[in-house]
Design a protein around this nucleic acid. Structure first.
Lengths: 329, 329
DNA sequence: TTGTATGCGTTATCAG
DNA sequence: CTGATAACGCATACAA
């Protein structure tokens, strides 16, 4: 393997000079800079990132911690977008990233998790979809030993930032769209699971909305489950004028049940995944830009690692209707 | 940061001894081994993987190269399973992994790609869904400089292995299921895009099948596109007794079009993604176990890195029917 | 502006 | 069985 030493010899300069050229230090004459660059291309030299990391001990590695969800394939689309955005961002920032699944990091004691991360010389964490039944990850976020950014969870302190859309406002917003044009007296609201921090925020939103509009609210726990949403729909749809769901999957389940029941109620979801196009009927939903959320999350963790202090970041969202035609290629 | 040196001091032994204990070398007395282990736990020592990698120059890093596909969200489920399996496998093998998207690695010159991988001290590659329009990745696989495993592409040499299911057999198999019970005279076959190596294998399968069964075959290029499959279905469905598609997405498109046309033809897909449950009608498909394919791929690249020589690996598949009830949670 | 020397945390070789 | 000590490839304070 050709090293910086070979380049130095080839260019007839000192090792440190080569290093300076490579890292774009200011005080190097154009003359020697060129000599070094020529040597680099001639020898096809490629710096060794591992050695560099060891030497300048600020090993800037970031772990992207993905929550695979309940295996039902629901989270796939969202997670892939998180990954794409996160990796892209890391690359532009020159950060080294490690992709992890929360299932690996979570169901193990905190000490072990910390050990693993340290071994990998990871100093920054981006935790996607952190929720209440992940004690280890929560501790990690509160721990303060790592710079961390949590997505969709309200953890903020000196060394951890939180990023998400304004779930409360978005829930109100999409509900508004659903009832325009109809005289809704009663809304059936199907919640997410209690584990999710977003669940409470969205619930707050719909409650406030109902109060403002003087609409009666039937609240049922949907657990983010399509099946449960179907059961709830079966039982309460006829008593309601519209159905607001805290997730797209539940909206799809609800809508399909309505079609089986052969009655119509406007339904809306939350997240904007393309599966919405297969629900059979057009529905409103809150589209989140998961790519940019992840992109921002990684740049935020970079900011933290450079000494920044934790903060809350709110990302934009959009109310859209999704149809089959919108999602196919 | 506490290092191996501190542990040595605490245990009252030499650095090299600590290293030997840590790496489970044979010649260490139980006596000192215990002393070292105690010191390790007492100091919460965690070995630095970066330093270790630098020192013992067999930096066993593997890149998982994912093909995001055409943005239509089709590949999400498959890729997430690849990732899960790959990461899991790497973890059990103690391999360091880097997740990359082919979009980053591909549309850049070979030299640059190699540089990047070298910089990251990556010596093993697992390339998922490698296809014909990815010249850089193909060169990488043929290059021989990295130990590589390609999934779904026929590249095999000294240092590269290929892994996939038997696409030809599977295509015949699923077609068989589709026509049992009906007297099929003509089958409409909708192909994948020419880029995909699997496309030709599956095509071969259906051709052989039709010949054996003395069934007439109408072959149309579906490009793996749901839209195109719809158009083809519209034009040729009535002339056929069954429709065999080279992918689930096309099968879904085809089935939906049939329902719009209000005619019935048995349809089958390929891959076994859960979206099949939303197609409206039950369909046969070939279920691939992407998780295990990835798992195996990573262990294979590990074998190659340990001096093994490239080979072809065939994975099992399964013919299944998928309904809405099967996929919801 | 350039070069020298030291250290980063391990592993591995070789004496003892 | 244990302990010095030289790499590994690079960054950086300091000297020139």
């Amino acid at each position: 393997m050709t090293s910086i030493r070979d380049v130095a010899a080839e260019a007839g300069v000192a090792i440190s000079t080569v290093s300076k050229v490579l890292n774009h230090y200011p005080n190097v004459s154009d003359e020697t800079k060129k000599r070094v660059e020529d040597a680099v291309t001639k020898l096809h030299f490629v710096p060794n990132a591992v050695a560099a990391a060891l030497s300048s001990k600020h090993a800037a590695r970031v772990a992207l911690i993905i929550n695979p969800g309940d295996e039902s394939g629901i989270m796939n689309e969202i997670n892939m977008q998180y990954l794409t955005g996160g990796l892209q961002s890391a690359r532009t920032l020159g950060l080294d990233v490690v992709t992890l699944f929360s299932t690996m990091t979570d169901h193990q004691p905190l000490e072990e998790a910390i050990s693993y991360l340290r071994t990998q010389s990871i100093s920054g964490l981006v935790i996607f979809n952190l929720n209440r039944n992940q004690p280890t990850l929560q501790s990690l976020a509160e721990h303060g030993d790592f710079k961390t950014v949590v997505v969709d969870a309200p953890f903020i302190n000196e060394s951890t930032s939180s990023i998400s859309i304004d779930n409360k406002a978005a829930q109100k917003d999409v509900a508004e769209h659903v009832i325009t044009g109809i005289k809704a007296k009663t809304i059936l609201y199907i919640t997410g699971s209690e584990d999710g921090y977003v669940t409470s925020e969205r619930l707050e939103g719909i409650k406030e909305f109902a109060e403002e509009k003087k609409i009666k609210l039937i609240i049922k726990d949907g657990q983010f489950s399509q099946k449960t949403a179907r059961q709830i729909t079966e039982e309460y749809a006829e008593k309601s004028d519209a159905i607001v769901c805290a997730s797209d999957m539940m909206a799809i389940g609800s809508m399909r049940k309505l079609m089986e029941m052969d009655i119509f109620r406007p339904v809306c979801g939350f997240d904007g995944i393309s599966l919405m196009g297969y629900a059979g009927k057009q529905m409103f939903t809150v589209r989140q830009d998961f790519y940019h959320i992840a992109f921002k999350a990684v740049s935020e963790v970079s900011r933290l690692m450079n000494g920044g202090t934790g903060m809350k970041i709110s990302m934009p969202y959009e109310i859209v209707r999704m149809t089959y035609e919108d999602v196919i290629r």
